[in-house]
Design a protein around this nucleic acid. Structure first.
Ligand SMILES: [Mn+2]
Ligand SMILES: [Mn+2]
Ligand SMILES: [Zn+2]
Ligand SMILES: [Zn+2]
Lengths: 146, 146
DNA sequence: GTGCAGATGCAATTCGGTTGCGTCCCGCTC
DNA sequence: GAGCGGGACGCAACCGAATTGCATCTGCAC
């Protein structure tokens, strides 16, 4: 009825579909958190996710952490370690495209996926070492910070 | 006179030379911390550095943090962000060789420089973004963990 | 509708790192 | 070799992201 609710965004339905498809129990916190991620144009911190959630159903901080962990495990999201010691989360748009680089603005912290830049799959490691995952992060200034 | 002191290691003299050469005031904490780094064969956490220091002159935790910051600023050491949200520090062996990749064991946390692997200098970023530093980290299992 | 494994909420805790501030001491000057 | 001044140090308090323990609740298979 024309109410002014800004959250949850239209992505809620998509979120539900993805969670179901992953064979997970469908809960309000999961739907809400994933919807926020699907709606975002950049990587979000736990804190940013929490406040994007606030107006609707309140979700406990710890639950947000646990939901995010779960989404990452399921491959529905990935998380990026930050220079500022906080994780940032992004919905994994398309499970078909591989691991990629990320850019973080050292001034405002804004973090985005560089989907065009694949991480090198062929790094040479010392004898006996078993490489599993390659992380490629670019620090610098974003468009609005320089 | 033949006492069994294990610390500071023989690298103390080298540490003093480097600190002097950087135009810095020579203090016991600085010498001790840098000597530990010069003696290490892998990247060390703040905690590891602190305990490597312990038997000799006790140095305050906070001082260790400040000394490490300073060494990094001076280019005498570099630090590596970890998946476990802790920095690891390495003496910068040779100021002449550029930025390189790192390997971190996801089981034991052991971190080493992959000096042979240079970080790609040419990453393509979105319009208006200014890249400044590229971080290339390989996660996996070290020789003694798999 | 019932039962239960799994999910949530809440409070307390951990832990790497930082800040404020009074005291100390390195290295320069005379 | 004393005197001095600014930087370095030690100590205690603090911060914030993330984790843990546990009681309660709930999605969903039956
Ligand atoms: Mn990404
Ligand atoms: Mn290195
Ligand atoms: Zn920015
Ligand atoms: Zn290992």
């Amino acid at each position: 009825m024309g109410n002014a609710t800004l959250r949850p965004p239209a992505k809620a339905a998509a979120a539900q579909r993805l969670i179901r498809a992953a064979g997970e129990r469908l809960t309000a916190p999961r739907t809400a958190v994933l919807a926020v991620l699907l709606d975002a144009k950049r990587a979000l911190t736990h804190h940013e996710i929490e406040s994007a959630l606030a107006p609707g159903v309140p979700v406990d901080r710890v639950t947000v952490y646990r939901v995010l962990d779960r989404l990452v495990t399921l491959g529905l999201a990935h998380r990026i370690p930050g220079e500022d010691r906080t994780w940032r989360y992004v919905a994994s748009r398309d499970s078909s495209h591989g691991p990629h680089a990320h850019f973080t603005c050292s001034r405002c912290g804004k973090t985005v996926c560089l989907e065009a830049v694949a991480t090198p799959p062929d790094v040479k490691v010392p004898r006996g070492f078993l490489p599993q995952k390659v992380e490629l992060t670019v620090q610098g200034l974003c468009a609005s910070c320089h």
